[in-house]
Amino acid sequence: MPLPPYDLDVRPILKSGGAPFGVIMEAVAALAPGQSLRLLAPFKPVPLFQALGARGFQPAAREIGNGDWEVTFSPVDSPAPESKAASGEADWPEPRLCLDNRDLEPPEPMVKTLEALETLAPGETLAALVPREPLFLFDQLRDRGHAWRGSFEADGSYRIVIRAGGLPGKPA
């Protein structure tokens, strides 16, 4: 018998001006295997669809009046494709490299990540923790034809998994 979903109402947090991302990520981390997360929010939390999609959760959203939304994130067997650069991908291989670039001074997190990426064979992946959502890195990855998935961590840092491009049929 499946577990009842874990309920989380982030409306009070948002109303008081807070950012609920950390709380949501903590709740996700605390879910039992197979358990869903039922989220109540004052808007349709589209950015979360991507972030939790990368962690293998499928969203089902419905409006419940007053502009509020109820979204149930249910775990699926394989992670949902997340970024548009990664669309149509099956499971990615385990990261061959894991980098922790959180304490580097900008733009070193980006430089170190791209340096490591150069050592990968096409199709291989690496995972990197960076201090913030790496918007400038996304540009570089897009220009160079790599695919990526990313999400925020509970501490506000950002974890990105990059798959080296250059496979047949992939933009290089």
């Binding site: 900008p106 733009p107 980006m110 430089v111 990540t113 791209l114 340096e115 490591a116 990426l117 150069e118 400038f136 540009d139 570089q140 220009d143």
Partner: peptide
């Protein structure tokens, strides 16, 4: 300097020493 660096060395970042 940061934007200049990004504009100039962005394309070779990670591939060559900058």
């Amino acid at each position: 300097p940061f934007l200049t660096w990004l504009e100039c060395y962005g394309p070779v970042m990670g591939r060559k020493p900058t």
